[in-house]
Amino acid sequence: MNTTIDTQMGAASDCPAAAQGDDRDRIIQISNVSMRFRMANDRVRSIKEYFVKRLRREIEYREFEALHQVSFDVRRGEVVGLIGRNGAGKSTILKIISGILKPTEGSVLVRGNVAPMLELGSGFDMDMTGRENVYINGAILGYTEKFINEKYEEIVEFSEIGPFMDVPLRNYSSGMIARLAFSIATVVKPEILIVDEVLSVGDAEFQQKSFARMMELMSGGTTVLFVSHTLPQIRQMCSRVVWLHQGKVQMFGPAKEVCDAYETL
């Protein structure tokens, strides 16, 4: 129902040999993943510029390693937190898991459907009405037409913007847009949910409501990967935590231990 990664990662999960024994339980397996970006001094955006710079040998690439030999795994039904300073590589690893980025080295195995919530409201079109956007956003998140038809009322009810569903999105307030987006993204029960700091949506009341919805999803057996800078939230929700520091795994273990270590830093 949700976006699976049908590159070699997804394909490998169908392979019977990989599905033996204890491995079956590990819904995400990340082994020795490195991600390097080649950063040219100045990104070349035109053909002329490319050749001119090439001739003058001005193109120098600086390698930037966003992730270095990262390995961890996530078991089915577990809530795993990701912590670390800005630029530690948290978003990069989430993008790799959801299939948006391909790692330079290493392998990623994902056994299940991934629902990415990297940023809410992907593909919202400001000229379209709320109703049209529910359908297109749902399609992007991988829902079927039948599913959206069934859940449409639920989405509208949760987002609390019923009367505005036939108004173009450009007339919405930013809070309304975020509420609609959150409602669409969480109406489904995916096998793996990737959450990147999206709980601070709407007013206090809606935040509480969305927090409750997240807890409900997690207790329902969904595996969650969770990025947050709010440590109390991490302690409350996660069973295990990965601490990334400058692209490397600094620590990986039970939530309490890792959070304590992170705080004493």
């Binding site: 976006t3 990664i5 049908d6 959801s98 299939g99 948006i100 991934v114 990415p116 990297l118 940023e119 992907s122 593909g123 992007i140 998140l141 991988g142």
Partner: peptide
């Protein structure tokens, strides 16, 4: 034109 989508969701 679909950069915002490609950066956030995996779709072929």
């Amino acid at each position: 034109g679909n950069a915002s989508l490609i950066k956030k969701v995996y779709v072929p």
